[in-house]
Write a protein that binds this DNA or RNA. Structure first.
Length: 269
DNA sequence: CTGGTAACCTGGCCGC
DNA sequence: TGCGGCCAGGTTACCA
């Protein structure tokens, strides 16, 4: 599930149910999910601590304890958080469980085991080390910087939009939404985009992600003129009713409208 | 530098 | 009901 809007939702969720609460126990249910340190060390580091702050960068969630260190959570393709008070509500695929002294527990759920958790003293250092680009909705991330990152770059627009080293937070689904709204074919080469189109990609990215965050990533509640509610096999374009097509780009399925989204410059509406 | 591919994992769904 | 095959909203090592 998680692209940037979902992780924004998880961050709020984390704050609501974990911030300011003392950790009674932390249990790693599947050691493969932990990266960079032993599962036992992570458990020990968190037990008895209290969460004091959160931070989000792209698809990463960080949560700081009063010990100073930050818990890292990356959700992969299917990860999510689930808070419960009654053990009867414990979720399936619970990989990491934090129980609070005052009752209740927060589960890091991850069916496919893609994604990971860890610990760092410095989220900024981790972001830099991974070479992540600016977080997509960061207010300081403006068009000037976006243009600097994209102009002069070769290759197709869609893989670039999904490249976390350029911009952190956009994944396969939201890239499709952004390119549909800007009427740009996913295989369009960056070098062939006009300045106006590039600006439009940036503005649309911000607008789409803001809208998605507001609606907690719930695609069903998106405006009907949006692409994602229609993004499925044999569906039709919300703008022109043409049947949608798919193409594999960078190993992922891209949905697009062959009539609204053209590959050649000057053919876009 | 850029992109294609496969691999990492596991579950859900479709068709036979 | 069972099984094979395919797909899945991410990342990353490796190759061309």
């Amino acid at each position: 599930m998680p692209e940037m809007p979902e992780v924004a939702g998880y961050t709020k969720y984390f704050e609501k149910c974990a911030l300011g609460r003392k950790i009674a126990s932390a249990r790693v249910r599947d050691a493969r999910i932990v990266r960079g340190l032993a599962a036992g060390e992570l458990e020990k580091e968190l037990t008895g601590r209290t969460f004091v702050a959160t931070r989000q960068h792209g698809k990463y969630l960080f949560a700081q304890t009063d010990g100073g260190k930050w818990l890292i959570e990356h959700f992969g393709m299917n990860g999510r958080l689930w808070y419960f008070e009654d053990y009867g509500e414990a979720p399936k695929f619970d990989r990491f469980l934090i129980s609070f002294e005052s009752g209740g527990a927060l589960s890091y759920v991850n069916p496919r085991m893609l994604g990971w958790i860890g610990l760092t003293e410095d989220p900024g250092g981790l972001i830099e080390g991974k070479g992540l680009g600016p977080s997509a909705l960061d207010p300081l991330f403006d068009y000037g910087e976006f243009k600097r990152i994209f102009s002069g770059r070769k290759g197709e627009i869609k893989p670039a939009l999904m490249n976390q080293k350029l911009v952190a937070g956009v994944g396969n689904l939201y890239a499709d939404e952004i390119l549909f709204q800007t009427r740009i074919h996913p295989e369009m080469h960056i070098a062939r985009l006009s300045e106006k189109q590039l600006k439009s990609v940036f503005d649309t990215m911000k607008e789409v992600l803001r809208t998605a965050v507001e609606r907690n990533g719930d695609i069903g509640s998106f405006p009907q003129e949006y692409f994602l509610p229609h993004r499925r096999k044999s569906a039709t374009c919300p703008a022109c009713e043409n049947e949608l097509e798919t193409v594999k780009i960078a190993g992922r399925t891209s949905y697009f409208c062959p009539r609204c989204q053209k590959k050649e410059p000057g053919q876009n509406r």
